[in-house]
Each structure stands twice: as C-alpha cells, then as structure tokens.
Design a protein around this nucleic acid. Sequence first.
DNA 1: GATGAATGAGTTTTCATTCAT
DNA 2: CATGAATGAAAACTCATTCAT
Lengths: 197, 197, 197, 197
Amino acid sequence: MSPKVGMEPIRRQQIIEAAKQCIVAKGLPHFSIKDIAKEAKLSTGVIYHYFENKDDLLVDVLKSSFSETEQLVQKNVDQATSYHEKIQAYLETVAEVPDQNPDFYLILLNYLSQAPYNDELKRVISRFFLNLGEFIEGILKIGFKEGVIKKVETKPVANLILSQAMGIAFYYLVTNETVSKEKINRDFVEIFKKYIE
Amino acid sequence: MSPKVGMEPIRRQQIIEAAKQCIVAKGLPHFSIKDIAKEAKLSTGVIYHYFENKDDLLVDVLKSSFSETEQLVQKNVDQATSYHEKIQAYLETVAEVPDQNPDFYLILLNYLSQAPYNDELKRVISRFFLNLGEFIEGILKIGFKEGVIKKVETKPVANLILSQAMGIAFYYLVTNETVSKEKINRDFVEIFKKYIE
Amino acid sequence: MSPKVGMEPIRRQQIIEAAKQCIVAKGLPHFSIKDIAKEAKLSTGVIYHYFENKDDLLVDVLKSSFSETEQLVQKNVDQATSYHEKIQAYLETVAEVPDQNPDFYLILLNYLSQAPYNDELKRVISRFFLNLGEFIEGILKIGFKEGVIKKVETKPVANLILSQAMGIAFYYLVTNETVSKEKINRDFVEIFKKYIE
Amino acid sequence: MSPKVGMEPIRRQQIIEAAKQCIVAKGLPHFSIKDIAKEAKLSTGVIYHYFENKDDLLVDVLKSSFSETEQLVQKNVDQATSYHEKIQAYLETVAEVPDQNPDFYLILLNYLSQAPYNDELKRVISRFFLNLGEFIEGILKIGFKEGVIKKVETKPVANLILSQAMGIAFYYLVTNETVSKEKINRDFVEIFKKYIE
DNA sequence: GATGAATGAGTTTTCATTCAT
DNA sequence: CATGAATGAAAACTCATTCAT
C-alpha cells in the first residue's frame, strides 16, 4: 500500500515530530517509546529500525528543534540590510519566538536541565549557543564598520542577549503571567540597544 | 545510641539534604528512593515514615532550597541602609549566587523543567519569583522616595532582573564557559543600574 | 494519668474492637497494624505487647465475634420454655442477626474465605458451627420428647438451617437488595418448621 | 517456535487459568503477579501486556468462572423438556457443582468476601445471581403454565435456592465434613420441591 | 507499660529493548 | 520494512515486626 522503500527520511521525521509532541505534552522524563509509537501511529519495533536507541532519538529531536529556530532567525535577519534593521530584526525575532513557536523554549528547557548530566547534550546545546552568539557578533561587527556603534566586546553582549531571552522565556513558561509580557519584550529590545550603543 | 523518639526534624533535614545531593549528582529524573536512602545512610522505608511519597519529598527539597536563597538575599540586603547600597547588594548577591551556592541554580533548573507539567511546582516556583520580585520592588520604592531614581514600573524591572540572572546562570551551567563570566556579571549589574536610573 | 497496671483485659478488648472496625471498613486483607493502632488510638508497638502477632490478634477477633453471637442466641432461646417457643426463637434470632448485628456476617464472610488456607481458622469456625448445630439438635430433642415433632436426623437439619441462614446473609451483603428480605426471612422460618414437622 | 502475533486470546486464557490456580492454592489475597507468571510459565511483564492491572485481571478471572458455571447449568437444563425434568436438573446441577467443579465455590467465596469493599465485584456477582435467579424463575413459570405448581413469588424462591446452595457449599468448604453431604443434597432438592409445590 | 522510629523483604507496575513472524 | 509479543531489571511504595528510649 504505502511505499515501502525510501521511507527513511519520512519515517525519521514522523518519529521525531511524535517525540516532540510527547516532550511538549508530558516532559522529557515522562514518556516511553510506546508513547512515541502511539503518537506516530507506528509500532514500537519500527522506531528501533530508524534509531539506535531512545537517547539517540532524543538527541535528534533536539537537533531538529535547533535547526528550525536557527533557520527562522537567519531568514528574518537576512531580509534586513543595514545594521539597524538587522539588530532590530534579530532582537525582535528572539523576543517573539515564544509566541511564534511556543514549543521551542519548552523543549529547550527540558533538554537544558539534562545537559549537566549528559556530555552529548552539552555539546549540542553549546554549539547552538555558539552559533547564535556568532550570529549576533556578525551583526555587531557590521554596526562597528558602519560606525553606528562603539567598539564592544561582542562575546559578553551575545551571551547577555541570549541569557536574557532564555530567562524571560522560562520565566513565563512557569509563571504563566502575560500581563507585563509585551512591556518586558519592548524593554528587552531597548535595554540591549542602549547597552550596545 | 541515637534517640528513638523526636527524630522528625533531624531525619527530615537529613533526607532532604541527601535528595539534594542526588539531584546535583544525577539530575531530577535519574535517581531513586533507594539512592536517596543510600546517600542518607538510612533504609528506604524510613523515608516514607517522614514523607508521604517521592513527589512530596521533592517539593520539600525545592522549598528548602528556596528558603536558603531567600535568607541569603535578605541578610545581604538588610545589612545595607541606603538605596544605593541596597540595590548594589541585591544585584551582587544575585550575581554571586552561582559562586557561593553553585548547586542552587542547578537544582532550580531541574525543577523549572518539570514545572510546566506539575501545578504544585508551578505554584512554589511562582511564589519564589514573586517574593524576590517584591523584594526588588521594595528597594526601588526606597530609591524613589530618596529621590535618587525616576519612577519606574517596578514589576517589569524585577522580572527582567530575575530573568537575566537565571538565564546567565543556566547558560554557564551548560556551557561551562568561565572566561567572560566576571565581565558578564559586572555588565549585568551595570545594565540594570543604568536601566533603572 | 490512666491506670498503668491491670490494663491487660481492657487493652486487649480495645485492640480487638479496633481490628473489627478495620475489617468492617476495609476487609481482612486491606488494613495494617498501623490502621488498627490508629483506630484504637494507640501506638503500633503496644499491640505487640498484648498479642503475639497479627495473625494471633485476628484469630482472637473472630473468637470474640463468635462468642457474642453465641451469647445472643443462647439468651433468646433460654427465655423460651416449650419446644415451639424455642425453635421459633432460634430461627427468628438467626434470621434477625443481620439486622441486629450487621457486622457479624460481614466479619464471618471475611474469615470464611480465609479458612480453606488456614487450619486454625478452620478449627475455630468448625467449632462455632458445631456449637450452633448442637444447640439446634438440643432443641429438636426436646421437640421429640414433647412428642410434637417426628424423629429427624438432627445433624443434616442443623446444617441446612445454618447453611441457609449464612447463604441468605451473604446474598444480601453483596447484592444490597432489601425488597424481598422480609418475605425471605419469613419463608426461611416456615420452610424449616415444615421440614422438621 | 510459537507464533508471535495474534497471541492475545491464547495468552489471556492462559493467564486467567494460572490466576485461578493461584486463588485455589493460596487464596485471593495471598499470591502475587509473580506467582501467576510462574504458574503460567510467563514473565511478569507479559501479564501487563494483556491486562491493565492485577484488579482487572482478577475481575476477568471471576467473569470466566461465572461464565463456565452458567454454561454448565444451561446445558443440563436445556436437555430437559418438561417442568419436572427441568427443575430436577436445575436443583441437581446446583447441588452437584461442588463435586463436578470443586474450585467454583472456593473461587466464589474468595470474591464474595471482597465484594462488600469493591463495587465492580459487587456488580459482577449481583449480575450472576440475577442471571441464575431469572433462570429459575423461567423454569417456575413453565411449571405454572403446565399447571403442575401453584403460583409462587418466583424471586424469593430463586433467592432461597441460591442462598441455600451457596451456604451448603461454603459450609463444607470450611468444615470438610463429608458424612452427611449426600443426605444434605437430597434434602436440599426435596425441601425446595416441596416449598414450590 | 507505651511510644514511634527503623528495617528490609516483598508487592505492583513500567519500560527499553529484542526478535520471531 | 513492520508488527507487537516477550523479557526482566528496576522503580515506588507497603508493612509486619523489633527495639531503644
């Protein structure tokens, strides 16, 4: 009936998406391979056909999430041309991820809490932070070249931006406050523009 | 040898500390009641004599961690008298928690990742954030009365400070970078002083 | 405060009554020594001061229940003088135990189901049946002497009466029907009077 | 060797039979899932593949026992044509269940004692009683139509028959008397024929 | 006499993984 | 490729019993 060959990429993606839904619905430690199989409408056995084991699958889930977010940021920033537009686009994208892709920070939080006990996760997450950091640094260098910002140590700036974005997202994941959220996001953008300039 | 009556407070504390060590060593989802018992040098049964179940115990572990950190902040800020001293003490204390009590943010991260799936944790963590937030708001009001800062919306400020502190701590928990850490902490203090004033 | 010596019979009775309440409330396999202690408002330790172990205590509970019921039957029958009065009193007492002492058959049912696996319970229950059986046989012999009934094999009669009474009680314990109960009790008395005469 | 797909009905039956043996050998509260697995020569895990939990399995064991007995009664009565033959077949079947299927009443007794504390068991047992009761009532109605018995209130009759049969069976389960058993069974049949006619 | 703290074996249940079909 | 049956170790939790105080 359904095609039986060349299913590899399709099945892998199907299983990864099912696993994401499980993380979002139950949390990283609280679902089984059976849960993933049910969510993906597959048998448990087939998962082991496409992934070595559960841990491997879960690492791939994280990589997939990171890849999506990196592409989103890249796309939004690439549309802008000048430093001012780029930095604005970047900060706004970061500030709006929780609204546009609410699962992202939830998934990140789940993996982040496991990273201190798992070197592979540590590596994958560190690389993601590094990539985003270098991305900001690239923008800042443009600003410096354009002469619109002072020379800054780009690394701490990048870290502070990422940290603040992550901290805000986690804060709201747990408290469910929404009242001051917009004000916070505006302030977040303002603070860092002032900090840089 | 040891007394057989009135052990309640001693044992509860002993078990809570053992559980903390397990969280720090293995992560919230990766240790068993048996591990806690071994760490506390007690039998598994006695844990159920003092705690209803594992979840209850783990909530008490979090409450204990929060209580310690709240007392630390309180102590450091109370020693200061003027607004300037107080806000400096507050920001520095928050910035230095990762050094003075390195386990705190690791434990917090573990629980934070479970909070979206657990209403009791959500409540406990929200209350902690609220307490710390109100604490900052109190300091800011002093600054306004003293006429040394402008009138600010205290709630978003408080949230941003907490979020940034948490974000930085988590960032370093996972990346193990230490190079730019001091610079980051200094900038953190500077950013928020500038933001407020 | 409370007397500390000569407590033996009082404490034993207190514990036995608490155990009865536990059986009635939860069923023989579903309560612990701690439950009994709580019900009796005593510590767990004290129970082992008065009873060898849980099994021993539970046997004593059954003996106590049997003793109460035997005394009730004895009292009601002794008040009657003639055979006709005695047999009527006997059958009515047996029929009315479920109303007058609703716990009795519930407790009996609990122990009966354990008897096939426990020789001591088997002995205690057999003796109870034997006592009640001999009691009926005594009444029947009076009837024969008075010339008001034919010569019957008393043992089967006794067994049938006991069995029927027990069966009816258990039937209603489980079905909670109450509609036809009175009719049943009347028929029970009638059937056996007819059967004997 | 054995097929690996479509084992459901075979395994379920295999597990149910193993559980029955455990009840007969040890009594409802005194065996573990491990005991059932050992008896069925399976792993403990597989039991949870086919049954939700122990309670569910045990309910299915009871239903299976009831179903067997209902079929036995049905078969024996259906072979008879007239009222006289049917009522005789019914009473004799009921009287002989303890001999032909000695485990049935032992299993029933085990469950009966749990029914007061378990609404599902209550429902299942009540329904069984109801079915058997309606079965007798059907026979009695034939007798009335044929004009060979008087008009009786069929429900109390049915209850009395069931109660007596159950009571006798339990009586002998516990006392192990066998001397007067045949006499009792004969009297049981006689009593009820006389009672009806 | 009385307390309740402590033990540890035993219970039910879950689950990653394997593998015959 | 795909299924789902099977395993068995490990988890949380219970509880009769003992014993220092």
